[in-house]
Design a protein around this nucleic acid. Sequence first.
RNA 1: GUGGGUGUAGUUCAGUGGUAGAGCACCGGAUUGUGGUUCCGGGCGUCGUGGGUUCAAAUCCCAUCACCCACCCCA
Length: 421
Amino acid sequence: MKFQAPRGTYDILPKEMNKWYYIEKIIKKYVKLFNYREIRLPIFEYKDLFQRSVGDDSDIVEKEMYVFEDKNERLFALRPEGTASVARSYIENSMISSKRDPKKIFYYGPMFRYSRPQKGRYRQFYQFGIEYIGDESAYADAEIITMGWKILQEAQVPDVSLEINSVGCKKCRKDYHKKLQEFLFARENKFCPNCQRRMKTNPLRVFDCKNYVCQEQLENAPQMLDNLCEDCEKHFDEVQENLKKLNVDYEINPRIVRGLDYYTRTAFEYKINYLGAQDALGGGGRYDGLIEYLGGKNTPAVGLSMGMERIILALEEAGVEFPQINTLDVFIIPMDKKYDDKAIEIMNKLHDSEISAQIADANTSMGSNFKFCDRNNVKFAIVIGENEIKSEEYAVKNISKHKQESVHLDKLTDYINSKIE
RNA sequence: GUGGGUGUAGUUCAGUGGUAGAGCACCGGAUUGUGGUUCCGGGCGUCGUGGGUUCAAAUCCCAUCACCCACCCCA
């Protein structure tokens, strides 16, 4: 029996980590700049939590959850997303918030969805997410949208388009639903079977159809944006004003809907067009009703989540070069077993000065050891041979510059420290 | 969940019924104290896995697993 990673999962190998560090560093920078604090949440929760928050007839709950029972017959699910857990924790830990003191939280970690894997789509995948809880003002929406935007910009993901929309509040969405369904049913037989099915279950989704004929039918369909109540319309205008102040480029796409039930008012997505079917790097929106719905006080909130794999794939696709991480400062090369003691002594000294160092195998040829340095981005090599032992002057070679100097044993650490940034 | 494609050395792939191959990578040597070039040498790998057809299967058939693409949906 040969073991392999379960379907839809994969290993992030040491040689790939630089890509992750690259993005994680940018994320850290922005959560700090905007004053978000990290929360670490369980990887599984009661199944009901997701069922209630994400929505009973969402695809996630219907067919994508990893559900299991524990020995006490309690039903759990591996988390398919992060917001539900944040909301649960917010309530459970009585994180009272107000406009003056909003709770600004971020999370990072694996999520699980049982869907058919393909490129940019896994059963275990990593999401980064931020939540701005306690402020109903449009500025909060704009801040969240801006952070995602800036992170993608700084990571240099090319050609990202930010699309925003408003899905209205409970009240105006209900009215609009009715209006849209009336419109759709009046032309039911002109739509594809898929759309005919959707107009009953989730009429908004009809807008997502890529069928040309359906799109034609939709040209005169009522738009949510034209049917917002006064408050929602004002809110949407203010979000846009704030985005302009923050220098964020966006476009309005009345078709951004989002798959989760809890969204109200603002919904948005960051999209690219060169990853095949996986065009969404991340998205989010406002979820004013969720916390109350889960048993907390009526609390406004807005958040976003981004897919790490998608961002990395986009960067790879675009040919962006990830910075290499230098893992080793000094490779100590003893030319014979009998110099191993000296090698250990030098390594210890270097470690004491926080210089990373590793000892080469004395039986391996010098050529091979230098090849190792090339391949592993080693900065310096120190050779230990008969001459060095006698004179206490060591050959220190700068690998990338192909140059070496003689340095006295006592000055090795100072010398290397002065050459390393 | 639906439809299609692929699965041979570390990797990219060739090989379509008759003794398993190539490029790159890797290791060693030429160069026994110095690396990105060159030259020489080095591969038995359950041909994804299990079963079947056949004198004979990497090759044909079935099943299964995984990956890829599209749909669905999203990250």
